[in-house]
């Protein structure tokens, strides 16, 4: 198999999968809650990139119909609009999740005075 086109042709998936597990690793291994939330955002963003990269077509343009094409439309000319729509929704969901996550982190901070998970666990056990 021809190695170079193979790597170039699939690097979008490689990048997204790398980000996906980078975010997940941060969420599992970090003890600071804000770092976990940052990991969460990386995690969700990787999926957004994954979808968007699936909508790409070589030699195609934005999915906004050009005046000269109004008679006969060739689908090859335009990017796939569906993943864009789906990811608009996913972005909004990610923002909403981030808002709630920060709210909860703020509440945790007000109760324990710290955002370090091990210190919180310690405070719970000694209570």
């Amino acid at each position: 198999m021809d190695a170079i086109p193979y790597f170039i042709g699939k690097y979008n998936y490689w990048g997204c999968i790398f980000l996906f597990f980078l975010g997940m690793y941060a969420m599992i291994s970090k003890t600071n809650l804000i770092k976990k939330i940052i990991g969460l955002n990386i995690f969700q963003t990787s999926i957004i990139l994954f979808f968007i990269s699936a909508s790409f077509k070589h030699d195609a343009t934005l999915p906004i119909l050009m005046e000269e094409h109004k008679g006969a439309i060739d689908p090859v000319m335009y990017l796939n609009p569906l993943p864009h729509v789906l990811m608009l929704t996913a972005i909004v969901v990610a923002v909403a999740t981030l808002g709630v996550a920060l709210t909860l982190a703020l509440k945790v901070y007000r109760i324990y005075g710290t955002l370090e998970e091990d210190e919180i666990n310690h405070a719970i056990q000694s209570h």
Partner: peptide, 24 residues
């Protein structure tokens, strides 16, 4: 409760994101 809810949020979002990756 807030700490438990935050943990649930992190775990739940991992779950939902895995599902979304499956959808992709």
């Amino acid at each position: 409760a807030p700490f438990a809810a935050l943990n649930y949020l992190l775990m739940g979002t991992i779950g939902a994101s895995f599902y979304l990756m499956g959808v992709a």
